[in-house]
Amino acid sequence: MTFDWKWDFVWEIAPRLAAATLNTLLAAGSGYAIALLLGLALALGQRTRWPALTFVLRETLEFVRSTPLVLQIFFIFYVGPQVGITLSPWVAGMMAIGLHYSAYLSEVYRAGIESVPKGQWEACRALNMTTRDTYARIVLPQAVPQAIPGMGNYLVGIFKDTPMLSVIGVTELMQTANAIGSETYRFLEPYTLVGVIFLALSLPTAGLVRLLERVLRRKLGM
């Protein structure tokens, strides 16, 4: 058995893994920001007066949700240059993650918006509010707390999917662990540490999301 855990080696690679952790968090954060905004736009886009737009968006999002993220990452990274847009691994990766998760988040928003009672819309109409104000001031403030659990789950989901960015060379945790492994021929420590880091970050995040949900609900008086 060649199992021998070396603590000196752990300390040696710790700084690199720490830096990579920051990159992972950055990737997850920016991917999430894109997904949150794009997801909202896609959810609202399905509620316009044009049924054709709704149909196209729904089917496209269904497609995005049904196909592997890793393949979408490759697709965007390699097909971009073919149509004249050369994307850095970071940009391509963020676009892929943002798009993939916006498809999920649009569903979360949609469910949140649909959970707002019809009477709220009618009250806005009776007060002669614009559609924009109705969404911005009445519907979304009620829909978002409903959506928080789902939004939180997908934050954790994005975080756990960032290792896929290693396939196009984004230097997040997985890529760094791979690099360390191929330089030193030691896989035990880097891969295990990556697992531990993920565990240590995603478990508390899940707890935090639950807490945030409670606080928000209370603050909005619901």
Partner: peptide, 26 residues
């Protein structure tokens, strides 16, 4: 103006904010 059977007040606003919403925004 209209009043509904189930009031349809905005749950995330106080009574005063409910009343001010229309005059300010509209």
């Amino acid at each position: 103006g209209m009043c509904f059977q189930h009031f349809n007040l905005f749950p995330h606003m106080t009574a005063l904010q409910n009343c001010m919403e229309g005059p300010v925004q509209v």
